[in-house]
Every structure is written in C-alpha cells, then in structure tokens.
Amino acid sequence: MAQWEKRPPGHDHRVEVADDTRVTELYLKAVDQFGSDEPAVRLGGVHALDRLGREHPEHRQVIVNLWCSYLRMTNPQPTNPGPNDAPEPPRETTVSSEEQHVQTTIAELLTARLRDPRPHAERNPRITPPPVTPTFWGPLDIDLSNTRLPAVDLSDCWIATATFTNTTFTTDARFRGTVFTDDAGFGGAVFTGYAGFGGAIFTDGVWFGGAVFTGYAGFDGAVFTGGASFAEAVFIGRAGFVEAVFTGGAWFGSAVFTDDAAFGGTVVTGRTWFNAAVFTGHAWFVGATFTGRADFSGAVFTGGAGFIGAVFTGGAGFGGAMFTGRAAGFGEAIFTDDAGFDTAVFTDNASTDGLMLLWQDPETETAAAEDAVGG
C-alpha cells in the first residue's frame, strides 16, 4: 500500500506542504535579516528567529547555533601567529551601542530559552529537565569557543554539549545551578572575573584543563558524575570546592593555586590526582573523603595544608610532596589503605593527633603515623 494511503481520513498533503513552505520562508527571511549590515535589522532577525523557534521546536537547535555563531564571529579571540606568519591586523574594538544591544539580546534569549522555569523547590532532584515548552527549549548544545564572550548569565540553565574551549569571559561567568547533560569543555578558558559554578551538575566529562581563573572560582556543592579535569589550571583568586562531589575521578595534576584553596567536605569516589600541584595559599581539605586512590605525589604546599578529619579509603600517595609553609595538619585523618609519604618534606610542625592508619597492625599504627610525617 502506498504511504499516502495510510494517512488518516481528512489529511490534506497540500496543507502540510504549504505549512513547510511557509516555515522555510519565515526562516530564510529571519536569517536574511540576521545577516543585515544594519544593527536594527539584525535585531529584528534575532527576534524573528526566536518567534520561529517558539512555534517550531524542530528549528530550535539550528537557531541556537546561529546565535552562538554570531557571538563567536563578532567577538573572536585574537589568534597567535606563528614565527613565519604576518602579524594579524588590529581589530576594531569599538562596538556601537546598537551592536551591543544585538549581542545583549542574543545572550538574554539564550538564557531565557535554556533556564529552568520551575520554582527552586520543584527542581530537586535535578536529574530530569522540565517539559519543553514554547519558552523553554533545553537542553540544547552551545558552542561559544574561541570567543571574547560578553556578559552571559547561564545560571540554572539546562545545556547539552557545552563548548567554551579557549573562551575569555570578559565579565563574571555565571553557571550557578546549571545542569550539563553531556560533555562540557572549558579547556584553556580565561575567567577574568568571578567564575560561579556553585551547585552545577556535570553529568558527563568536563574539562577545565589549562583554564585560568583570575577571580574567585566557586565550585562549592557542584556535582561531577563523569571525569573532571582541572589539570594545569591556574587559580589566581581563591578556589572553592567545598562539599563538591566527584564520582568519576578528579584530575588536578600540575594545577597552581596562588590563593587559598578550599576542598573541605569534598567527596571523591573515583581516583584523585593532585600530583605536582602547587598551593601557595592555604590548602584546606578538612573533612574531605577520598574513596579511590588519592595522589598528591610531588605536590608543593607553601601556605599551610589542612587534612584534619580527612578520610582516605583507597590509598594515598604523598611521596615527594613538600610542606614548606605553616604547619601541616593531619589530625584525626583516617587512612584505611596504604599511605605513602616517602621523601616528603615538612619544614614546619606536622600535626598528627588522632591520625589513624587502619591498614597497620594496632601495635605499629602509632609508630607508622609518626614515621609517615617525620614525627
């Protein structure tokens, strides 16, 4: 039987074709406006695309792609020419107020279409996005890589794949309570103001490798259910990971913390790497729990280190670590697997009151604890 014969009685194929043609015409007109040389016409195109997306869900990802592409093209990162390349010509840095209005409108619409519309009390547990409506389109992919990004507040949004690789956030970056349902890439990003990721949920892998945080980096209460990499990241301001949860492993190898770093109450159920990390402020791991192996080999602590009440159930390695600042506190810490402090250096007091090495025999536990930190 032919496909058209299976359609319900009263179905008019001509009406369907006419509707598709109308949508295509609306889309092409909106895109044409969006590409105009006149900011006012471009602004009209932005709103026309939004109206189209509200009425036709199948176009929403394409519309978001267009909006993101516009922000990338109008705010590109400077390229780094090679030794044999001609210098890049100076870019026009002055942006008219009309053009700023276009960019601000795009940013506001991105937020409005991806932000969870439910009251906060109805969002827990945040494992299922709210129903898609004409005003809530998420979660959708966002690609704002290699961009000098103007102000964008994506707090409480639902984002699928997030690509912010090599992006510079020229103002505060707000992702508080945001849910990332797929990979999130912030590798090489530069945060020039506050970086707010408190309470964010990353359900797949996330990369902050090589990122630079010049202001406060707030990840307090964030949840990472895939692998999370902050390898070689630089934290110039304070870093907060208080009560963050990592269930897929946490990589901080060779990261640099030049101010206080707070990991109090953090839980890592996969493996943890802080090998060769540098802490020049106070490193605070009070009450943290590591159920996989925790590797702090070669880490440098010049501003004091606090591991009071921390629990290590999967083994811990501090071989070659250097504690050159204020006292290193391991009081009441618990190690239920091997703990290696071979060649570690403590230049100040190391507090081990109540330290428990539970893989040792009771007779040798106290001696091993003192030996571990050179007591």
Rank of each mutant, 00 (worst) to 15 (best):
H101I: 04
G309T: 12
T214L: 09
W137Y: 12
F285V: 00
Q61V: 03
V95M: 07
Q360T: 13
Q103H: 15
R115E: 12
I236A: 14
G303I: 09
L114G: 09
G325A: 13
G138S: 13
H282E: 01
P57N: 04
K29Q: 01
G281V: 06
P87C: 02
T266D: 11
I308P: 08
A233T: 10
A328I: 01
L144M: 04
V245E: 11
R238G: 13
D12I: 07
F241Q: 12
T313M: 02
P8D: 07
F290T: 04
T266C: 09
D259C: 13
R51S: 05
V179L: 05
A333P: 01
D220M: 05
S96C: 03
D259N: 14
G187I: 04
F312E: 01
G227D: 07
T324A: 04
G185L: 04
F224E: 14
F285M: 01
W251T: 00
A200C: 08
N65E: 15
V311F: 10
N80A: 04
S351I: 11
A372G: 10
R22E: 02
V31A: 00
A328C: 01
T168Q: 13
R123T: 10
Q100L: 10
V345S: 07
F290C: 01
D156C: 05
A173E: 06
G177P: 11
E232Y: 00
V179K: 13
E370W: 15
T135Y: 08
R7Y: 06
E58G: 09
D37P: 03
A231N: 13
T266R: 05
T225W: 07
E108K: 00
V206E: 12
H120W: 05
G354L: 11
H101L: 12
R60I: 08
D338K: 03
P362D: 14
M322Q: 07
S96M: 07
F230I: 07
E5N: 05
V62I: 05
T104E: 15
M73R: 14
V267M: 09
D50Q: 06
S96R: 04
P130I: 01
E363F: 15
P117N: 14
E58A: 11
V62G: 02
E232G: 01
F197E: 11
G227H: 12
P362F: 10
F341T: 07
T170Q: 09
F175N: 08
D204M: 05
T105F: 10
N75M: 03
V41N: 05
Y27V: 00
A86S: 13
V212R: 09
I142S: 02
D143T: 06
E25G: 00
D37K: 04
V268D: 10
F197A: 11
A112V: 06
D348A: 13
T79P: 00
E55H: 11
F224T: 13
A369W: 13
